[in-house]
Write a protein that binds this DNA or RNA. Structure first.
Length: 460
RNA sequence: GGCGGCGUGGCCGAGUGGUUUAGGCAGGGGCCUGCAAAGCCCCGUACCCGGGUUCGAUUCCCGGCGCCGCCUCCA
């Protein structure tokens, strides 16, 4: 069974499930006000890999990830561009899914939108007020964190130290600077919903409590997101659930940053790269490989060099697939089916061991590359059955990680095919100057030429 | 100020109290090849600094130095 580092306890813990055999996970999705950046790509890939690995392990997974489609930034953007909040949100949500599809991130089972859950949020806020845990001010409704048991669990801070370090601006009406808005009263020109405590819109921290509990139920298994969401976002979600006496996430998982020259990548620093740009420039699998190569909680450096290195190492995988004619995608195969599909049981066990231990994808990947070497050795020796067996293992394990293999045969136009045939003739008749000239010609047309015992093969 | 993380060979990036090595990329040498490409083999004597624990530390402890993050509705 998979163990993961739990932000709440600070330790690696076995994932103990609410319902044996079934996993419910909620991952905080994007606020759709702009194109996604590399950080969004990383968390999506990390949790996609967790999800896929759980499925590979034979568990039934319900994966839920929200779209925040009402928020200050969306409203600001809409106002600046003379559009509605919904238009802005729709536009960037479309961009989001396009990027996710390109990355090979499986679609979540549920993609709740905040604006579809407002009545439930109003109900929750009313409940918080009725319990005396939240109070109304002139601009909204705030949750009082003072009485919340265990507040600071995810931030690993006591209430006192949080209070002393608080950098939020002073709001005279708030009882504590740490209190957060569960409802924001409408300002002129803003979209709003009716509520007993005044028209307005929900605070960010409220949507995820309502939607996660609403879709996955109390005590769902895993709640995740980027490391900066642990505090205050997740802390505040948890605070609401605690006040309501509702069991919340059993495990908390957060992934590390994408960094640029050692610094956290963020929009405020202006050092972010859009995911869309990266995907336009490089094989999307390269980013997944880059993410898998590092531990999910470590920072990763993403730049032209590191992406380039990943692209090169992808070649090694694709070359094997091409050589052995491996299937591109065995993603549907789980660990039980892997051996039946022809995978090596020992390699499979090593993979599972690495992954189970807090998702050591780097170690798992190293194992896969060792298999690539083994498969090539077997193929060199003419041991076809062994080569296929080991190669199939590579395909299965890559499939488990959501990393499809390339190397599928390319369509070759008739003119190029004629050149290849001519080159084969030239080589057979040992007319090497002619053969070399044709190779140059083929390469100029973007083909990679490989001569084998059975003649010339070309790809890409 | 509080809390947390990191510092590994040319680069990216794992891991471990000690035998033989993470892995990838790049580089050098060799095999194979008509020549290449791909593939295979070998190589460069890596663990920020100073103490301590230990038979032995890159790995544990303490202290430095450097870098980074969270404490703001940033993934």
């Amino acid at each position: 069974m998979l163990s993961l580092h739990d932000t709440a306890t600070g330790r690696v813990e076995a994932l103990e499930l609410r319902d044996p055999g079934r996993v419910s996970m909620y991952v905080c999705g994007p606020t759709v006000y702009d194109v996604p950046h590399l950080g969004h790509g990383r968390f999506s890939l990390v949790f996609d890999v967790i999800r896929r690995y759980l499925e590979f392990s034979g568990l039934e997974v319900r994966y839920c990830s929200n779209i925040t489609d009402i928020d200050d930034k969306i409203i600001q953007k809409a106002a600046a561009e003379g559009r509605t909040q919904a238009e802005v949100a729709d536009q960037f949500e479309a961009v989001w899914w396009e990027a996710m599809d390109a990355l090979g991130v499986k679609r979540p089972d549920d993609t709740p939108h905040a604006t579809d859950w407002v009545p439930q949020m109003v109900e929750l806020v009313a409940d918080l007020v009725a319990r005396g845990a939240a109070y109304e001010t002139s601009d909204g409704v705030y949750l009082s964190v003072e009485g919340v048991e265990g507040y600071g669990l995810l931030g690993h801070q006591s209430l006192d130290s949080l209070r002393s370090g608080a950098r939020v601006e002073i709001d005279e009406e708030k009882r504590s600077p740490l209190d957060f808005a569960v409802w924001k009263k409408v300002k002129p020109g803003e979209p709003s919903w009716e509520a007993p405590f005044g028209a307005g819109r929900p605070g960010w921290h409220t949507e995820c409590v309502v939607m996660s509990l609403g879709l996955l139920g109390e005590g769902f298994d895993l709640h995740g997101g980027g490391a900066d969401l642990a505090f205050p976002h997740h802390e505040n979600e948890r605070a609401q659930a605690v006040v309501l006496g509702r069991a919340f996430a059993r495990h908390w998982v957060h992934n590390g940053w994408v960094v640029v020259e050692g610094e956290k990548m963020s929009k405020s620093l202006g050092n972010f790269t859009s995911l869309t740009d990266l995907l336009a420039r490089a094989d999307a699998r390269a980013y997944r490989l880059l993410v898998l190569r590092a531990h999910y909680r470590s920072p990763i450096e993403v730049n032209g060099d590191s992406v380039g290195q990943a692209v090169e190492s992808l070649e090694r995988l694709d070359n094997l697939a091409r050589r052995l004619g491996l299937p591109a995608d065995l993603a549907g195969v789980d660990s039980a089916g892997a051996v039946a599909a022809g995978a090596d049981p020992d390699a499979l066990a090593a993979f599972v061991e690495a992954m189970d231990e807090d998702l050591q994808t780097a170690r798992a990947l190293a194992g896969i590359f060792d298999l690539v070497t083994r498969a090539n050795i077997a193929a060199d020796a003419g041991e076809e059955a062994e080569a296929t067996r080991v190669g199939t293992t590579v395909a299965v394990l890559c499939g488990a990680l959501g990393l499809p293999l390339g190397g599928a045969p390319d369509d070759i136009d008739p003119e190029t095919a004629a050149l290849v045939a001519e080159r084969n003739e030239a080589r057979t008749s040992r007319d090497f100057p002619r053969a070399d000239a044709i190779r140059v010609e083929l390469e100029a047309r973007g083909w990679i030429v490989m001569d084998g015992p059975e003649g010339t093969a070309i790809h890409r």
